[in-house]
């Protein structure tokens, strides 16, 4: 009796044989090519990541304007305008169509009165001036220490930026690019990519006490460009700050000294720690502005190592007596 499963294969024709052989050959060729093309001595394929460097955001120095403009008063917007106008007006720094990034200090989930973040009125004034200078893009950004959404909302900077025509930029984990700062402590670090996508940078720091570096002002505000594990920088904070000041050259620095955090910095939290400063300082020499700001905290540049280091690196001068400082009352 024949098998129940008695279906037999059809006889192989010459054509079928050639087709089958060709299929097997081409399949082995593909396998061989795959091995050849992807053969590697490394277990993981690495792609070369592009390493960025900071551009020079500064504009040409004009000797006819004072080096620093200091305005005193109580109306933040008027003070900012007066100070900037005295050193050539916003049009000296921002040309129509340029992309501008504004870097306030918005590190902490605190309210404006607690003076842990840049005064939102100052941010509003700077954004307005950039709008008037016809900047094509006005970004406001910071890499906050507390939750960024809360920091920007509760500091009032979010409203100040949005209502006056600025755009808030929150850096997510994917928004950081490796950047060579060419410093002694800071070499290649992740930096918020927004800083590489603009033409001009306006630094709006504030004046605060800080236990380790003694103060945090214009130069330490540049910490806010960094991502990664920047808490390690505390281990050599003075060199790190000097490295930042040497690597990043903002177009303009407008220091908010309307409120000063005298103690318990940089977080503050108690109104008793806050003093009135009622001053705005504008200029292009970040070291000079920093040195000027020390007076609010009763400090001397000789005692602040990072300022001296930054001066040596050519970021500016601490000898503010030799500078032409314009004082304005508003």
């Amino acid at each position: 009796m024949p098998s129940k499963h008695n279906k037999t294969e059809p006889q192989l024709t010459r054509r079928d044989f050639i087709i089958k052989t060709a299929t097997v050959c081409s399949a082995s060729a593909v396998v061989g090519l795959w091995g050849y093309a992807f053969y590697s001595n490394d277990p993981v394929r690495r792609q070369d990541t592009k390493i960025f460097t900071f551009k020079d955001y500064r504009v040409e120095d004009v000797k006819t304007y004072p080096n620093l403009a200091v305005s005193r008063g109580t109306d933040a917007e008027k003070m900012v305008r007066a100070a900037v106008d005295r050193i050539g007006g916003i049009t000296r720094f921002i040309k129509p169509g340029e992309r501008v990034l504004i870097k306030p200090n918005v590190s902490w989930d605190r309210q404006p009165e607690q003076a842990a973040n840049t005064n939102p009125e100052v941010v509003a004034a700077v954004v307005k001036m950039c709008v008037e200078a016809k900047a094509s893009v006005i970004w406001v950004t910071d890499v906050s220490v507390n939750d960024p959404y809360r920091c920007f909302a509760r500091s009032g900077v979010e409203d100040a930026a949005k209502k006056n025509g600025g755009v808030l930029k929150f850096a997510t984990e994917n928004d950081f690019v490796q950047t060579d700062l060419k410093g002694k402590a800071l070499k290649v670090w992740p930096v918020s990519a927004f800083f590489h996508q603009v033409d001009k940078l306006i630094n709006i720091p504030m004046v605060k006490h800080h236990s380790l570096s003694k103060c945090t002002m214009a130069m330490k505000n540049l910490y806010g460009v960094l991502g990664g594990q920047r808490n390690r920088l505390h281990q050599d904070i003075n060199t790190s700050i000097a490295d930042l000041a040497a690597a990043i050259k903002p177009t303009l620095t407008i220091m908010d000294a309307t409120r000063i955090l005298m103690r318990n910095g940089p977080t503050g939290g108690n109104l008793a720690d806050v003093a009135r400063g009622d001053t705005i300082i504008a200029g292009t020499d970040i070291v000079a502005i920093e040195t000027y700001g020390l007076s609010f905290l009763d400090l001397k540049p000789e005692n602040i190592p990072y300022i001296l280091m930054a001066e040596q690196r050519g970021a500016g001068t601490t000898d503010i007596k030799s500078l032409n400082i314009a004082e304005i009352s508003v």
Binding site: Q235, T267, N270
Partner: peptide, 14 residues
């Protein structure tokens, strides 16, 4: 040198 913990401590006084 470090004291990052002191910097971020939110209370006043810290």
């Amino acid at each position: 040198e470090c004291i990052v913990c002191e910097e971020v401590c939110p209370t006043s006084p810290k």
